[in-house]
Every structure is written in structure tokens, then in C-alpha cells.
């Protein structure tokens, strides 16, 4: 701020408070709705103060779900989401680190070809090639399995590029010193590159975890067995009913949104680093 203008400051605070209120409002309504009974929600207009059914709603959703709407207990769906998100995240980081290492620290035939092959994955979002991808996964018998939920999503051009970029900034002397001391490529990777990359790995971990947790279309089409439903797609099944049980939908929704929101709030610095650096 350059000069002191009390009125401008007041207006700025008002603008920001209005902005925050607008951003928070839909979630506030959801939290409120999850503490009422269904009849409380359906009489006239939506209440704006908490009701007294909160504990019952969450308990019901957590333990038994809404089976006639095709939604298993939320505890199970949250676990499935967690397993899928972790598998995607760890898988992406692992294969991207290996391929960035190969591309930066080796000279071999078809290096450029492989680089472009990985680049192409950036351009083919799953929504665009959904039907043939579904056919491949069905042919491989991977429907209704955690492998089917995660493996098709773990190729990552962005992570490979980020690690390549980062490896390029590591001083040449590191490798020279390691080779003089007789360290082979895998030892160099494990004992020098990995420890240096910890911050980058953590930053990408946050972004990838959110990406994995929020997957929607893919779990929706490849799971028909409720044991593999994830929470984000389970919510859609509950709302697509004739008369959705909104109080339970909102309880499930709050539970589905909480883990990734907590990840962002507690790891804000890593999250901002991961976001701004992967996209550049």
C-alpha cells in the first residue's frame, strides 16, 4: 500500500468480506442442511440456523448409507476414495520421478520420442476418450477393482515435466562427485536426487491427492459393485433419485469435501507452490 486512505481501506475490507461470504455461502447452507431432518428442510424454505438432527444424520450416513438409492455407508465410500486417491498419487509420483530421471540423466536412442509420447498424455483428458478407454479396461478385466480405478489415471505429463525442470537445476557437480565416488545411477537417484526433491514431491503430493480424491466420471463408469463406490460419485447417485433425501446428501457432501479441504488448509504453502509451479 502506497498511501493512507482510510475510506479506501474500509471499502476494500467490505469487498473482501462480501467475497468471502459469497464463497462460503453454499458450503454454509450445506452444513446447516445436514443438521436438519428431511421434513424440516421440505417445509417452505431452507432454514439458516443449525437444527438438532446433525448427529443422527451423520451417524446414519456413516454406518448404513442410503442403500435403496444405491449409496453404501459413507465410511466405506470414504475409505474407497482414500485408497483410490493414494494409489493415484503415489503411482503418479513414482513413475514420473523414474521417467524424469531417465530423460535428464541418460542419453539414449529415441529419448525425444519418449518425451513427446509422455507429452501427448497432457492433451488427452479421460472425458474425451471415455468410451475406448472403458473398452480397454473392460477387456483387461479391471472393472470393479482398485487397479481399474487408479492405474489408467496415473500417467502424468505435468509431474514428469516438473521433475525434469527441477533435475535440470541441480548442479552438474553433484553427479560428477557421485561418479568419482563410484555411485551407480540407482544409488545416485536414491541417495542424492530423492532427498533433494522432497519439497517438490510434497507439493505435488497435495495437488495429486486432490485430483485423485475428486475423480468422478471414471469411478462412475467402471464401478457397478457398491463395494467400490467412491464418495464423490456416491453423492451423485443419491441426488439422481426421484425425491432425494437432502439432509443425508448434505451430510455425505460435507464428509466428502472435508478431507481435501483440510489438506489445503493445513498444507497451504505446499499447495500454492505445487499449483503455481506445475502450471507454469
Amino acid at each position: 500500500m502506497v498511501e493512507n486512505r482510510p475510506w479506501a481501506n474500509l471499502i476494500a475490507h467490505l469487498v473482501l468480506i462480501a467475497g468471502v461470504a459469497l464463497v462460503v455461502f453454499p458450503v454454509y447452507v450445506a452444513i446447516i442442511a445436514s443438521t436438519h431432518s428431511l421434513s424440516g428442510l421440505l417445509q417452505g424454505t431452507l432454514p439458516l440456523l443449525p437444527g438438532d438432527q446433525g448427529i443422527e444424520n451423520y451417524k446414519l450416513m456413516w454406518q448404513s448409507g442410503v442403500s435403496n438409492a444405491g449409496a453404501p455407508p459413507a465410511g466405506l465410500m470414504l475409505w474407497n476414495s482414500f485408497v483410490m486417491a493414494m494409489a493415484i498419487t503415489v503411482g503418479k509420483l513414482f513413475i514420473s520421478l523414474l521417467s524424469a530421471f531417465a530423460i535428464v540423466y541418460f542419453r539414449f536412442r529415441f529419448r525425444m520420442f519418449f518425451f513427446w509420447l509422455i507429452f501427448v498424455t497432457l492433451m488427452l483428458p479421460v472425458e474425451v476418450r471415455i468410451i475406448p478407454t472403458f473398452q480397454v479396461v473392460a477387456d483387461l478385466n479391471m472393472l470393479n477393482s482398485f487397479a481399474g480405478l487408479s492405474i489408467p489415471l496415473i500417467a502424468s505429463a505435468t509431474a514428469t515435466f516438473l521433475f525434469r525442470q527441477f533435475f535440470m537445476t541441480i548442479p552438474e557437480e553433484m553427479l560428477e562427485a557421485a561418479r568419482v565416488d563410484g555411485a551407480g545411477p540407482l544409488k545416485f537417484f536414491k541417495d542424492i536426487l530423492m532427498p533433494l526433491s522432497v519439497t517438490n514431491i510434497a507439493a505435488l503430493f497435495v495437488i495429486m491427492f486432490i485430483y485423485g480424491w475428486n475423480q468422478y466420471l471414471w469411478p462412475l463408469i467402471i464401478t457397478t459393485d457398491p463395494d467400490y463406490y467412491t464418495i464423490v460419485m456416491g453423492i451423485q447417485r443419491m441426488t439422481s433419485e426421484e425425491n432425494p433425501q437432502w439432509h443425508l446428501v448434505m451430510a455425505a457432501l460435507v464428509m466428502a469435501a472435508l478431507p481435501p479441504v483440510l489438506v489445503i488448509l493445513f498444507m497451504q504453502r505446499l499447495f500454492v507452490k505445487g499449483l503455481t509451479e506445475t502450471e507454469k
Binding site: V23, P26, L46, N214, V232, T239, A257, V261, I264
Partner: peptide
Amino acid sequence: TTLLVWPYAIAPAIAGVLWWFI
């Protein structure tokens, strides 16, 4: 900043259901 960044974590499907509801 903290109060404004967290919607990034909300899945598009959930954002849709939230607005559909209100």
C-alpha cells in the same frame, strides 16, 4: 487468502450439487 483458496479442493460434482441445492 486462506479463506478464499479452499474451494479449489471441492470436487466439480460436489460444487454442482451445492449450487443445485441452494
